[in-house]
């Protein structure tokens, strides 16, 4: 049979059909993602259950333990889910508080880039509870404080600061904090900073700003100037640069 060349109508039809195929393709792909998300949720629930119910058995079988951990890693499930139990409650022994310690440090590390290593205890609790998964029992502030106390043997790197009725947890000690460096960067052009200026530029909490500035003052790295309405913190080391800039 002789094959006719395609006319304009045919081309239009073809384009239309292609557009439809594309729509359909996107639709299917979206459906698949939704399905995947559902499967991931199922996976998560199962893994959480197993972690809390079969801890000992999983620990015993080394090959399986590695595989279990791999699954937890790809789905983002916490394999540590001991419940508090009688002895932990009474004597503070057992894995419960150690596990909590790991989870607390983890939250602090994960949020450190945002809060500079200073976190309110309520926020800490919310995050720990969330990361332990749905199966976890409730964690009280007291539990957190106990768990942090267990970390004391590891030096002063991790400390609880009491402020008013609440607590703050500091996970980055003064020696290692990057906050000072950030403050200096703020002072780069003018050789001085003010609290409100830092607040505006870095969006830090007042508590954190004062901590950084006080430390610099104490170390003799900045001088204070209280003549203007708001205290200015001057960096003598940046005087020369500021002169050149202006």
């Amino acid at each position: 049979m002789h094959r006719r060349g395609a006319g304009i109508a045919a081309i239009k039809n073809k384009n239309l059909a292609q557009a439809r195929y594309k729509d359909k393709g996107t639709e299917i792909a979206e459906g698949q993602v939704a399905q995947m998300a559902k499967q991931m949720e199922t996976f998560k629930v199962h893994l959480e259950n197993f972690a809390s119910q079969h801890k000992e058995e999983i620990r015993k079988n080394s090959e399986f333990r590695v595989q279990f951990q791999e699954m937890c890693a790809s789905i983002g499930v916490d394999p540590l889910a001991s419940s508090k139990g009688f002895w932990a409650e009474m004597l503070g022994v057992g894995d419960f508080y150690y596990e909590l310690g790991v989870q607390i440090v983890e939250v602090c590390l994960a949020t450190g880039h945002r809060n500079g290593g200073l976190i309110g205890i309520e926020e800490l609790r919310d995050r720990v509870v969330k990361s332990r998964g749905k199966k976890s029992q409730d964690i009280s502030i007291d539990d957190l404080l106990r768990a942090i106390k267990k970390l004391k043997v590891l030096g002063n790197g991790f400390s609880v600061i009491s402020c008013g009725r609440s607590y703050m947890v500091q996970s980055v000690p003064g020696e290692l904090s990057m906050d000072h460096t950030s403050v200096i960067q703020q002072a780069q052009n003018s050789a001085y900073v003010t609290v409100s200026q830092i607040k505006k530029n870095l969006n830090w909490e007042t508590e954190r700003i004062h901590r950084a500035l006080d430390y610099l003052v104490k170390e003799g790295l900045v001088w204070t100037d209280k003549q203007s309405s708001e205290t200015q913190y001057w960096f003598p080391s940046l005087f020369a640069g500021a002169m050149n800039a202006s």
Partner: peptide
């Protein structure tokens, strides 16, 4: 450089369910 409490967290995560106590780590 890393604080010992960070180390505690990282090591225990890597060990999975074989928890290490702070004393043993030290």
């Amino acid at each position: 450089i890393m604080t010992l409490s960070d180390v505690y967290c990282r090591v225990n995560r890597a060990r999975g369910m074989e928890l290490l106590s702070p004393e043993d780590l030290l």
